[in-house]
Write a protein that binds this DNA or RNA. Structure first.
Lengths: 117, 117
DNA sequence: GATCAATATATCTATATCGCGATACAGTAA
DNA sequence: TTACTGTATCGCGATATAGATATATTGATC
């Protein structure tokens, strides 16, 4: 009788854990989430993202590079411009799950306060 | 005609973005993912998690504290022991999504290599 | 060619956090 | 009380990365 992995239902291999952590890390930055949120409404150029977010151009470009390396967004060059789009639908799913979690916490805290009175 | 949020379908409020980023950050650590993976098979005490992961007891305790603050796990004290369990089913879902993403990348890279020959 | 605009990159400082080691804090038993 | 065990926490050095600024690169136009 062993402690872990009683069946073959191990969901993450040891090697995958590091990659999964890395991918979560990509989404663990407000700046990148702001960029993704803007892009979820449709493709935008770097300049448009700068206007939409108020971030500095250099930082926008850098974060877009990170998101692109992780294949969360894709780039399409149009002349002198670069138009980015969300390339993985899972991004929306992941954010939705986290938002749901926040909503739950909010409700839990309210019930907690109310129940104590 | 405005750039963002054409309808009321804004998925994350500005305030939520920071919280979402924070939650992703919790999962962006291999050590914590190892702990969560172990706990997905069933509740375990701190000592059992130390054995299961090979991590130092202090680190296990600290990371469990982080996971608990984020409400991803819950603690149940049993005498001198502390038994932890995954308290949010979304944790599994989130990891599955990231794993799926890694699988896709692997396949994409293989096709890419093969197509170039 | 020169020049301008859009994007990418390089360098820097500051901050955050990991793992480690040591230690403090229960809870139990003698 | 003292001693022991399981957990939690503190302090430190090292590493990683965000944002700001400056600069380089690329494409279009003259």
């Amino acid at each position: 009788m062993q402690l872990q992995k009683q069946s073959g239902e191990e969901m993450m291999s040891d090697g995958q854990v590091a990659e999964v952590a890395h991918l979560f890390g990509i989404l663990a930055e407000p700046s990148r989430l702001f960029l993704l949120r803007a892009l979820m409404a449709g493709p935008l150029t770097v300049g448009e993202l700068v206007s939409a977010t108020g971030m500095k151009q250099g930082n926008v470009s850098k974060h877009l590079g990170v998101l692109r390396d992780a294949r969360f967004v894709a780039r399409e060059k149009e002349g002198n411009f670069a138009r980015y789009r969300v390339s993985d639908p899972k991004v929306r799913r992941l954010c939705e799950l986290m938002c749901a979690r926040i909503e739950e916490d909010a409700h839990g805290r309210l019930r907690e306060l109310g129940g104590e009175v």
